[in-house]
Simulated assay, not measured.
Amino acid sequence: MEIAHPNSLVLKPFPNGITVSLGKIAEKIEFSLKAVGVDFDAIVVLLDRERRALPAADIAVELQQRLAELCPGRSFVIGVSDIQVENWILADVDRMRARFGNEAYIYAGDGVGGKRRLGELSGGESFSPRAKAELLKSCKASSIRASSASFDRFCGAANFEWFWLAA
Rank of each mutant, 00 (worst) to 15 (best):
I78Y: 02
N102G: 03
Q84W: 14
N87G: 04
I83P: 13
V77P: 04
A108M: 11
P72K: 05
G109M: 02
L70W: 01
V93C: 12
G111I: 02
I78T: 00
F100G: 10
W88H: 07
Q65F: 11
R66M: 13
N102S: 08
E103H: 09
W88T: 13
I78D: 03
E86K: 01
I83Q: 15
Q64N: 14
Y107V: 11
D82V: 00
E69A: 15
G101L: 10
F76H: 03
E69D: 10
I89P: 07
L67D: 05
V77F: 00
G101P: 09
R74Y: 00
V85L: 08
R99W: 09
F76V: 04
N87I: 03
I106L: 13
D110E: 07
S75Q: 12
A98D: 11
G101T: 08
R95A: 15
I89L: 05
A98V: 14
L70H: 01
S75T: 08
I78M: 02
A108E: 14
S75F: 09
S81K: 11
V93G: 15
R66H: 11
R66P: 08
L67S: 02
I89Q: 06
V85H: 03
V93M: 09
F100S: 10
G101V: 08
A91G: 09
V112W: 03
R97I: 01
I106P: 04
Q65G: 13
I78K: 00
R66Y: 04
N102K: 07
R74C: 00
C71A: 11
R95F: 10
F76S: 05
V93H: 04
C71I: 01
Y107E: 08
G79K: 09
G113L: 03
I106R: 14
Q64S: 15
D92W: 05
N102D: 10
Y107F: 15
A91L: 03
I78Q: 02
C71P: 00
R97A: 09
Q65R: 11
L70Y: 00
G79T: 10
Q64L: 09
Q84K: 13
Y105V: 12
M96W: 03
I78F: 00
G109D: 04
G113V: 05
D82Q: 03
S81Y: 15
V112A: 09
R66A: 14
G111Y: 04
D92T: 02
A104V: 13
Y105E: 15
V93K: 01
C71E: 01
V77S: 04
W88K: 07
D92F: 04
N102Y: 13
C71K: 01
D94Q: 14
V77Y: 02
G113R: 06
Y105D: 15
R66D: 05
F100E: 08
A91N: 02
V93Q: 14
R95G: 13
R74V: 01
Y107D: 12
Q84P: 11
V112Y: 05
W88Q: 10
V93P: 10
V93W: 04
D82M: 01
Q84F: 15
A108I: 10
G111A: 04
I106F: 13
G101W: 08
Y105L: 14
G79P: 15
P72W: 06
Q84H: 15
A91K: 06
V85R: 06
G101F: 10
I78E: 00
I83A: 11
R66K: 14
V80N: 07
V77L: 00
R97Q: 07
I78R: 01
D82I: 00
